[in-house]
Structures are given as C-alpha cells and as structure tokens.
Design a protein around this nucleic acid. Structure first.
Length: 476
RNA sequence: GGCGGCGUAGCCAAGUGGCUAAGGCGGAGGUCUGCAAAACCUCUAUUCAUCGGUUCGAUUCCGAUCGCCGCCUCCA
C-alpha cells in the first residue's frame, strides 16, 4: 500500500505523489528565536522529523528547508518579538537571535531531531523578500501606502481556501485595531515602514523598513525549493492567517500552485489548555530534559498521532517511559546475542519475522504517519523477538532481526538509545566490572555481587542476571 | 457570531459499517530464578459522551444535545 497523507487543503487523506519522481521538496515553518524552545516546538519538529525520516526510508531524496524567523514577527502591541527579547535581556538583537538559535538546535539534537538541510534566516534574505514584493506590486496584487506595502485581498478571491473562511464574514478588527492604511481589514503587510527607533530596518524601494512576517516563507521556499513544493508543514494555529497568506502571495507572484500537500499538527496542552509562550504556561525543552531523557520525550510525543492534541503531564510520560524500556531491553538483548550466538543453524523463522515486522510497520506508517499504531507493532515484534531469542538461534538470524528492528525503531522513529560519541566511553570498563562480578557469582559470593549491582545502579548502570550470564544497560 | 477538531478501560492511546474494539502503563495470578530485575504465559472495555435516525447490522455514517479544545490577523 502506498503512502497516504492527510492534506489540510482537501481535508482528506490523499496518496502521496511528489512533483518529481523520487524526490521530495519540503518546507516547515521554523521557530521565532526570541526565547527557549518549549514542548510545543518539540511536538512540531519531531512530527516533521518523522516525515523526513520515513520518506528517506522509502528511498526518496528529500530536501528539507526550515526557516529561522529573526525579524518581522510582531506582537499584539506592534513590537517586534526579537526587539522585545533584546530589550528584556539588554543585548543586541542579533546576539539574542544567535543565543536562541543555538538553544533551539541543542534542544532538537537532544530530542534526536535531524537538522534540516537548510536553515535560512529571514534577516539574511531581505533582497529575496523585496523581490517577491516588487513582483506582487507589478502584477497589481499589492499596494503601497506611506512606505508600507500590503497584499490586496480583493484581488485574490481564493483567499481563505485553506482554512475554510470567508474574510468578509470575519469580525474585522476583532482583536487588533483596524489599520487605516489598509483597503480591506484582511489585507496583510508585506513590508512595514520603520520608525526611526526601530533598530532592525533595511533600505527598500519604499524607504526604510522591514519585512512582514509571512513573506519570508514564500521568498525562502521559492529560493531553495522552487515555485511549487511537495510538502509544507506547520502547526494548526498557523493555518490562518499565516499559511493562507503564504498561499496568496506565493501563487499571486508565480501563477503556479504553491504547495501540493499541507500538513498541520495539533497542539500540546497543559491541563487541557494550549501550551504557548503568550499564555506563559510552557515547559521548556531544557527543563523537561532535567527530568526525562530525549528518547523518552520523543517516544511520548510519538505515542499519540500528530493530528491529535497531546496533554503534557508527568503521569503519562512516566508510563510511556516504562513502556519504552521494554523496547530498549529487546534492543540490548539483540546487541548482546549478536556477539554470542552460534553460526550454525536455520534462519527461516528470523527471515519470516523480519519481513513481517517490515510489512506491518510500513502499513501503519503509510497511513498518514500513524506512529502510535507503528509503535504498537513494535511492542508485538519485541515480544516475538524475545521469544525467538530465548530458544536456539543463529548469529545471522539475530543480525537479520536486529537490522530490521534498528531500522524501524532507530532510523525511522529515532527512539533507540544513540551510540555514545567520543573516542572512549565507559562501556569497556563497565563490561570488565560485569565480567568480574560474574566470576563472583560462580563462586557464590552473593554479598559482594549484590553490593556491586546495587552500587552500579546508583551510578546509572543496571545489571540484570540471566541464565546465560549478566546483561547491563544505562539507566536514567 | 463564523470556521475546524475532539469525547474509546483506573491512566495514556490506535482503530473498524459485521468475525475476539490494537498497543503501552497500572492491577491480579502463574512460569523461570541464589536474591533482585527482566523475559514469557493467563486475566483485566457485552462496550466506544448522551439521545434519536439510516441500515439486516453502527463505536464507525447522518442529525441533535452535553462537555472540552483550537483558530477568527500573537503562537510550534
């Protein structure tokens, strides 16, 4: 069965067919870097990390662009978020941007989110944005007023097709004061005139100013991925107005469809309400990482579907983390058996299991990246593997199953423990201690053996004694 | 007021017009075992918010009601 993706544009699941066979161009709305990333960001970027990883698993050549917004994203008060943050921390705006861009990547690294192929910054693409705005003015889709440029909604009847809205029925100025410069209340800024005190400003054909929030995505998407792209991802809260504006300005400028598949993930809730910076009820990724490790947070996020809301609470994460231990235990067992299993014997059962693991996992993932169902399959596979490994088994059988398990749970879902980096880890020393302790056990020196096990656990290494010897793993 | 989503066991969470409603956590019992843990086996929703309708048959489709959430120019 082929991959099916829920397309927000049609509100249906559609078979995925990329514009160019074998390659996928994908753009995801990145963070505005004025504060630490929170769990909501984690859900967003883990969601699209899975999309990229699975598409690559399916042998697509994926080019993944995710912007860094560092200008033009305004608060209700009209202040730029970046300038506000810079004032708060009493530093230069670009120092703030650099600080939180790094914090963002560090957090995503900890969550085992692969970095995008390109992470373009809005402030580094002012000429490209001006170019798109000029094109829109030439074609008559935009107008200039007092040094600001607005998109003319009246010239673009399709505005509202993504979010199912009729702009004329929306309450004009429901939350924001009506801007007298606009012809229609729904017209949105492509370029804003900068007052003298506004530090972040650039020269433009319309005077000193700065770009509107929406235009960066259109300009950078076009620059790196072309006029029509396969997948554009983002949060549901950005469906309107942000993505609606992107479609309008992009398609008005190029005359071709902007995005083939729009993907929107649902929100993270805290006690039933949305987690957001503006509500102040967010948990930063850094803070969550004090309590849980990256795989645990990632696994918890993947244990509900990306289009479902997710309530971030300790009870649920702890329960998920215990479940993840089962998958890790199977992984450790596979790794250990790979070294100890004999060469001789029959592999038919392992071949059959590996094939079934692959088919069942793909069946779930092909259904709009159904990670909770795919994880459920892994639990079933895990049980089967444990049973297989408790009987006579050959090394090549173990390798077959280990490779498949590693590919599905590790490469695609990214929930297996990662190899330690660096030229030397504690592993060989732990291994030595475990071996020595095994000798104590054969001598029935239970007291000392138990003390070593207990002290090692305090140091974060769990030792389990089995019939065939002792196993160990890091425990956090 | 407009647009969209959700309500499945003690908790988390898939799913389907009809055979036994996945999986995880928790709980109960068992096998194994120096102990501990793991692993394995068995059990743990006559029922899918409520009420109607369509249908031979609905948790699934339709309508209404209740509850919760998001968006309506700030957000991942």
């Amino acid at each position: 069965m082929a991959l099916v993706i829920y397309n927000s544009l049609s509100r249906k699941k559609e078979e995925f067919v990329p514009l160019h066979p074998g390659r996928v161009n994908m753009y995801v709305c990145g963070p505005t870097v004025y504060d630490y990333p929170h769990i909501g960001h984690a859900k967003s970027y883990i969601t699209f990390d899975i999309v990229v990883r699975y598409l690559r698993y399916l042998q697509y050549n994926v080019l993944y662009v995710q912007n860094i917004t560092d200008v033009g994203h305004l608060l209700d008060s009209g202040e730029d978020r970046i300038l506000r943050g810079a004032q708060r921390e009493k530093i230069e705006p670009m120092v703030l941007v650099e600080r939180y861009t790094r914090a963002y990547f560090e957090a995503m690294d900890a969550l085992n989110v692969l970095r995008p192929d390109i992470s373009p910054r809005a402030s580094g693409h002012i000429p490209e944005q001006i170019q798109v705005i000029e094109l829109l003015l030439q074609k008559g889709f935009a107008y200039e007023r007092n040094g600001s440029v607005y998109f003319d909604i009246a010239r673009w009847p399709a505005y509202g097709k993504l979010s199912g809205r009729d702009v004329n029925e929306q309450l004009a100025g429901a939350r924001l004061e009506i801007n007298e410069e606009k012809r229609h209340p729904a017209d949105f800024a492509l370029w804003k005139r900068a007052e003298a005190e506004h530090i972040m400003q650039w020269s433009s054909p319309w005077g000193r100013g700065y770009p509107g929030w929406h235009i960066e995505c259109s300009a950078m998407s076009m620059k790196y991925l072309g006029e029509s792209i396969d997948i554009h991802g983002g949060g549901m809260e950005n469906q309107f107005p942000h993505h609606e504006c992107e479609i309008a300005q992009s398609e008005a400028a190029t005359g071709v469809p902007f995005v083939r598949y729009w993907m929107h993930h649902n929100m993270v809730l805290v006690n039933g309400v949305k987690m957001s910076k503006s509500l102040g009820n967010f948990t930063s990724v850094q803070k969550a990482l004090h309590t849980y490790n990256g795989e645990q947070i990632r696994f918890f996020i993947l244990s509900s579907h990306y289009r479902s809301p997710m309530d971030f609470n300790d009870e649920a994460i702890k329960a998920a983390a215990v479940g993840l231990e089962r998958l890790h235990a199977t992984w450790h067992l596979l790794r250990r058996m790979e070294e100890s299993a004999p060469e001789e014997g029959n592999n038919a059962q392992a071949e059959e299991l590996g094939e079934r693991m692959k088919n069942q996992f793909e069946r779930e993932m092909n259904d709009d990246f159904n990670t909770p169902a795919a994880i459920a399959q892994l639990f079933d596979h895990s049980r089967e593997i444990n049973k297989l490994l408790s009987g006579p088994v050959t090394r090549s059988a173990v390798v077959t199953v280990r490779q498949m398990f590693g590919q599905l749970a590790g490469d695609v879902l990214g929930i297996l423990p990662r190899e330690q980096q660096g030229f030397m880890t504690a592993d060989p020393f732990i291994h030595l201690i475990v071996r020595l302790r095994e000798q104590l056990r054969t001598l029935k020196n239970w007291q000392l053996a138990d003390e070593i096990r207990c002290r090692m656990l305090e140091l974060g290494v769990e030792i389990k004694d089995g019939k065939a010897g002792s196993e160990w793993q890091y425990k956090r």
